[in-house]
Every structure is written in C-alpha cells, then in structure tokens.
Simulated scan of single mutants.
Amino acid sequence: MAEGTIKKLTDKGFGFIDTGNGEDMFFHNSNLEGVSYEQLSEGQRVSYTEGRGPKGPRAENVKLA
C-alpha cells in the first residue's frame, strides 16, 4: 500500500492526498475503510491502494496510517 498526507478536503465528500512525488491522488468518501470522512483532517497520514475511477487515477481502501 502507498502512503501519503491528506492535502485537501472538500465539503462535497472528496479530497486529495499528497503522494510525495509531486502528484495529488483523488479520493471519495466511499473509498474509506475504518474511518469516516468527518474524522479526517488535512495533514493526516493515510495509506491507500492506487486504483482507477471514471475520471482517472484515484485512491481506494483509504485508511489512517
């Protein structure tokens, strides 16, 4: 699993993870595991699996690291 830091959260239920390689990874609250969207905050470390969504790359199986 890859790890990164939550860079941005929106009020629409999705956010972006700073992957550490200069690119951000999109995630949706439906891809969270063991944590609710409301428990997340910017700057938290998370682990995730890289996947593909209808609009391109996205983080799946997102959980606190």
Rank of each mutant, 00 (worst) to 15 (best):
P54R: 14
K8G: 00
L9Q: 03
A59P: 02
G15Q: 10
Y37N: 06
F26H: 01
M1I: 08
V35Y: 03
V46W: 01
D18W: 01
A65D: 13
Q44W: 04
E50T: 14
D24N: 12
G22D: 06
G22N: 01
N31E: 13
T49R: 05
N21G: 12
L40Y: 03
I17L: 04
G43I: 14
I17R: 00
K8E: 00
Y37K: 03
T10Y: 07
T49F: 02
K7G: 03
G13D: 15
G13I: 13
F16W: 06
Q44T: 03
D18S: 10
G13R: 06
V35N: 02
S36I: 07
G53P: 00
G56M: 09
R58L: 11
S36L: 10
Q44H: 05
G53W: 04
A2T: 10
Q44R: 09
K12S: 15
K55S: 04
Q39V: 06
A59Y: 02
S30A: 10
Q39D: 15
D24Q: 04
I6R: 02
E42D: 14
G13P: 02
L32S: 05
K7T: 08
R45E: 14
K8L: 04
T49A: 13
K7P: 00
L32R: 12
L64H: 09
P54M: 13
E3I: 09
V62Q: 06
D11I: 06
I17N: 02
N61G: 09
E42K: 01
I17P: 00
L64Y: 03
K63E: 14
E38L: 09
H28Y: 04
G51Y: 00
E33T: 13
P54H: 04
N29L: 11
T49G: 08
V62R: 06
S36V: 13
Q44G: 06
L9S: 02
D11L: 05
G13A: 15
D24M: 01
E23Q: 12
G13H: 12
T5D: 07
M25K: 02
G53D: 08
S41I: 13
G4H: 00
E42W: 00
D18K: 05
V46F: 02
V46N: 04
D11E: 14
V62N: 02
S41M: 11
S30P: 03
T19I: 15
N21H: 09
E60H: 08
E3N: 07
S41N: 12
F26A: 06
N31A: 14
